[in-house]
Design a protein around this nucleic acid. Structure first.
Length: 563
RNA sequence: UGGGGUGUAGCCAAGAGGUAAGGCACGGGACUUUGACUCCCGCAUUCGUAGGUUCGACCCCUGCCACCCCAGCCA
């Protein structure tokens, strides 16, 4: 990042600044509130990066709060995974770690108070009846017959709900707002439901659980959150959010300059052809379509980490995408660009050949082994050098040789010359074929005067190839990962949700066998290589995807066994 | 259909009465011990649409159109 980089602003920053100027907010305090019912995916990054960066930008704090108000779906495994992923991206919840379940008691007390004040009541309508009474988008709802029961009666019932005297669904606590409101969310929304489910943290202490719309504003207020950022679909919930804040007495201020939380919404992230819904990702895992949440084809952070994405590239991506309220779908190419850019400037290079074609250097002295020194990065000498050997037989990429090459083909062709990266210039003298006409190997002569680093290396040839020493290399089995993308078609996102599995690209996993220089073998998973560049040799669209080519390397350490 | 939102290039996205930033993608060129990277150049006479106000409109007003969200005891 350049220091003088123009910091892009957005409507959220502006709103926060106004709140600071107007004195409505002394210290910015945000929170990222994931529900621990799955692993975080790239889409969540937009949310939590926004939360953390907003806090950072205004010298405020950001909390991590698990929104665990539905014990039926939540597990501890996910809270650990989520924390790991956030840390991996380089963020920390300096404001503290919380759980909505920390506030169950407080929520309960506030609920009793609301009942006493006639702002909530226990309803005995069945779920179906409730739906009928709610009305439709165009017609107002009607009051429940239980709506005006005495507060004392509701309180009594609510206490018995908590005591476990009623079956699930038998009763519910509702806010008393307006059944005729044009905003469906205000038609006496549910506040508490009965659920005999063991909670991952509170166990069986509770059998009634607060709804999101009730617990969220309270949690925000209790933590002193000033700006509660969320996605667009909650926009219509804001009146209810504010209602809860007001009615629970959080809007009046705490005397220390806290005026209660303010909800602000922005568009969530969509990426072309990418499944961006926890629900469907979860289905892929449960149906064993993938090996797990961290299957490298998944758009989850743990999977992207395994593939070799860097935190910096993801942060850069989110930064470039921007923040607005317009529904949008970002081109997958934008993400690829970000990884490519980060890896291209930081990744140490090494060579490997995935689809090997043997080349015999005819005039190379039998038994001679030359040791060449190669830089690990063309622009970063501090990344050091490594030694690579060259002997009589080497491998080059099959696609780097063409028998009938077009004029613009800069690689190896019959009688053509090419430089072996960091080594010598070779010339193709002969093609040795198998009985079936396929190429067995090439016989090439070497210009022994052209070794890199010597005066003879001045001679220019138009092509340069990567290669590995056939005698001194490591066989590798690489997996080529492409993200689990939806096939292109009329629908380029996950709109066609019903049948998304059948539209998944089945070619997203491919095994490739080849050879790599020894340095590669010692490299850690996630190390970045020359592969990044190899892809650019191909004019073919799929092969030019540097990311997928790069992923072949990440997969090197994988224990994948082809069937 | 009621309510809430959103429409600026193929895709994101700035601009907030003074004459359309930037990025991705794309096209052209230079450079190159990989054609990558890097570097130049090009890429909206027009901002969903039709009117209106104004010396001047993406920006203000009116009508229309399109898309998204809301009828969970999910979040």
């Amino acid at each position: 990042m350049m220091e003088n980089e123009v910091v892009r602003t957005n409507f959220i920053w502006e709103a926060i600044e106004q709140d600071i100027e107007s004195g409505r907010c002394n210290q910015v305090h945000t929170r990222f509130p994931p529900e621990p019912n799955g692993y975080l995916h790239i889409g969540h990054c937009k949310a939590f990066i926004t939360d953390f960066v907003a806090a950072d930008k205004y010298n405020g704090l950001c909390n991590l709060r698990f929104d665990d108000t539905n014990p039926a779906k939540e597990e501890t495994e996910y809270v650990d995974g989520i924390m790991e992923d956030i840390h991996w991206l380089g963020f920390d919840w300096k404001g503290g770690l919380f759980f909505a379940s920390d506030y169950y008691q407080k929520c309960y007390e506030l609920a009793e108070d609301l009942i006493l004040r006639g702002l909530a009541y226990v309803d005995e309508l069945s779920q179906e009846e409730m739906r009928e009474y709610r009305g439709t988008l165009t017609s107002p709802g009607k009051n429940s017959p239980w709506r005006d029961r005495p507060a004392e009666e509701s309180l009594e019932l609510f206490r018995r709900m908590r005591a476990g005297e009623f079956a699930e669904g038998r009763m519910i606590l509702r806010a008393k707002i307006d059944m005729a409101s044009p905003n469906m969310n205000m038609r006496d929304p549910a506040l508490y439901r009965i659920l005999y489910k063991e909670h991952h943290r509170t166990g069986n202490t509770w059998c009634i659980y607060p709804m999101y719309d009730y617990a969220h504003p309270i949690s925000d207020a209790l933590e002193g959150i000033t700006h509660s950022l969320c996605s667009l679909e909650f926009e219509a919930h804001r009146p209810l959010y504010d209602w809860v804040v007001e009615v629970c007495g959080f809007r009046s201020g705490d005397g220390k300059g806290y005026y209660g939380p303010r909800q602000m919404e922005f568009a969530r992230l969509n990426i072309t052809r990418t499944i961006m819904s926890k629900r469907y990702l979860r289905r892929l895992v449960e149906e064993n379509r993938v090996s797990g949440w961290d299957d490298p084809r998944m758009p989850t952070l743990c999977a992207m980490r395994r593939r070799g994405f860097t935190p910096a590239s993801i942060r850069d991506f989110i930064d470039r995408v921007g923040l607005s309220k317009a529904d949008s779908t970002v081109d997958y190419g934008m993400l690829e660009h970000c990884v490519r850019e980060d890896l291209g400037s930081t990744a140490p290079r090494a060579m490997a050949v995935l689809n090997p074609l043997k080349v015999v250097l005819t005039n190379w002295p039998e038994g001679k082994v030359d040791t060449l020194t190669m830089e690990n990065h063309p622009d970063h000498p501090e990344l050091g050098e490594r030694e690579v050997t060259l002997s009589r037989e080497i491998y080059i990429e099959q696609e780097d040789f063409m028998e009938d090459a077009p004029k613009k083909f800069f690689r190896l062709r019959p009688d053509g010359e090419v430089r072996l990266k960091g080594a010598y210039i070779i010339k193709c003298e002969n093609i040795v074929k198998n009985g079936d006409g396929s190429i067995a190997y090439l016989e090439c002569s070497v210009d022994l005067e052209s070794r890199s680093g010597t005066p003879g290396a001045e001679r220019k040839v138009k092509g340069t190839l990567h290669w590995v020493d056939a005698i001194n290399c490591t066989p590798v089995e690489a997996r080529l990962y492409e993200q689990l993308l939806l096939d292109e078609g009329e629908v380029d996102d996950e709109t066609d949700k019903k049948d998304f599995i059948s539209r998944l690209n089945p070619n997203s996993l491919e095994c490739v066998r080849g050879f790599a220089e020894h340095a590669l073998d010692a490299a850690p998973v996630g190390a970045k290589f020359q592969f990044l560049r190899m892809g650019y040799f191909c004019k073919d669209k799929d092969s030019t995807d540097a990311l997928s080519v790069y992923n072949r390397v990440v997969g090197l350490k994988d224990s994948y066994k082809p069937q």
